[in-house]
Structure formats: structure tokens, C-alpha cells
């Protein structure tokens, strides 16, 4: 049976603007939160989300259900675009204006407290599962997924072998999958 995302995608393929709005309402916050986690910059994160939705509307067939769930595909797309933006900013660090954006996140914890409280859903359970992962797996996953580090970079910075990095990522992902609530997210 097709999930909500796939149903919306089919309608978007036919130019249904209401379905496009519903898709944003269903996944927009998760996409924005992910981009913010990587970039710590609201304007950059908004650009990433806006451009991702624009690309989907312009060419909806760039996705197909064979590629997995629409939400999964969108989130990985946002992650990869955010990592690209992060690397591009890093290259221009010496302009001075960018170092602030990369290094300090003064409002990260406090600003959305009320919003976080309203998000007591399955995503909160996922966050708990992630927090419960052994530090060794969690650190490798964070460096790989949120910081875009290559396996070899992680191995070097954490003094691990390449094989250990890969196996920790695999184990971490397996544990996360097993922690999925019975109800589909």
C-alpha cells in the first residue's frame, strides 16, 4: 500500500497544488530541522528547503517510489545539499563573515523550546534511541551524517581503522531501524 508521501507525489506529478502544500506541511519541518542541525543558519536552511521543494515541483519524476519512501528521499536530499553548502562555506572561511556562522550557535538550544515540547511524537522516540546508542557508534554516525566527513576522515580523526568506521555506521543504522515504532513514521 502506498504511503501518504507517495499518494501526494502522484498528485504532484499531475500538478496538484493542494498536494504540494500538504507535502510541505507533512515534511517541511523535518527537512528544515535537519538542515538547521547541519548548517546552524536559518537563511541557509530555508534556501535548502525552498530549493528542494522547487526542484521536486519542477521535475517530480526525479523521485520514484522505487527509490524508497518519499520522505526518506527528501531528507537524504536535504542532508546532501546541506553538507554541500557547509563545505562551500568552509572554503570561504577566510572572508571573516562566515566564521561566525560556522562556529557559534548561540540560540540553538533555547529558541525552539516551546516548539520542541509540541513535538512529542515518534520522532522524539527516535531521538531517544539515537541518544541510547553507544557513544562510539553515535559519534561516528554524527560525523558521517551531520558533518559530512568521509570514512577515511573519521578514521583518522578518531584513530580507528576504516573497517571499524564502516561497521559502526552499519551497526548504528541497524539499531536505529530496530528502534522504529510499530506505527510507520
Amino acid at each position: 500500500m502506498a504511503s501518504e508521501g507517495e499518494d501526494l507525489w502522484k498528485k504532484i506529478c499531475n500538478g496538484d497544488t493542494q498536494a504540494f502544500a500538504s507535502l510541505y506541511d507533512a515534511f517541511g519541518t523535518a527537512m528544515f530541522s535537519l538542515s538547521m542541525q547541519i548548517l546552524h543558519d536559518r537563511w541557509d536552511a530555508e534556501e535548502i528547503v525552498q530549493d528542494t521543494f522547487a526542484a521536486l515541483w519542477k521535475k517530480p519524476t526525479s523521485y520514484s517510489p522505487k527509490k524508497g519512501k518519499l520522505r526518506s528521499w527528501l531528507l537524504v536530499l536535504v542532508r546532501n545539499r546541506s553538507i554541500d553548502r557547509y563545505r562551500s562555506r568552509k572554503r570561504r572561511l577566510d572572508t571573516g563573515e562566515l566564521s561566525v556562522a560556522l562556529d557559534t550557535h548561540p540560540h540553538e538550544e533555547a529558541a525552539d523550546g516551546a516548539f520542541m515540547a509540541s513535538q512529542e511524537d515518534d520522532r522524539a522516540l527516535l531521538r531517544q534511541s539515537f541518544e541510547k546508542l553507544p557513544e562510539s557508534q553515535k559519534n561516528v554516525l554524527e560525523n558521517s551524517f551531520f558533518k559530512g566527513m568521509a570514512h577515511s576522515e573519521i578514521a583518522s580523526s578518531m584513530n580507528l581503522s576504516l573497517g571499524t568506521v564502516k561497521s559502526r555506521i552499519r551497526l548504528g543504522l541497524q539499531k536505529m531501524r530496530r528502534s522504529l515504532p510499530t506505527k510507520e513514521l
Partner: peptide, 26 residues
């Protein structure tokens, strides 16, 4: 792989996007 990696993405701290972003996307 997409499904598993997206689970890590979903652990991000929730941040509320502005209404302005929604309007622009729509």
C-alpha cells in the same frame, strides 16, 4: 539505505520554519 539514513535525519532537534518559508514554497 535511504530509509535508514533518514532515521538519523529525523533525530535532528526540531526547529520551526517561518511562515514566510511556507508562503515562498507554496
Amino acid at each position: 539505505a535511504q530509509d535508514e539514513l533518514s532515521l538519523i535525519g529525523l533525530t535532528s532537534r526540531p526547529k520551526e520554519p517561518s511562515l514566510d518559508l511556507r508562503n515562498r514554497v507554496l
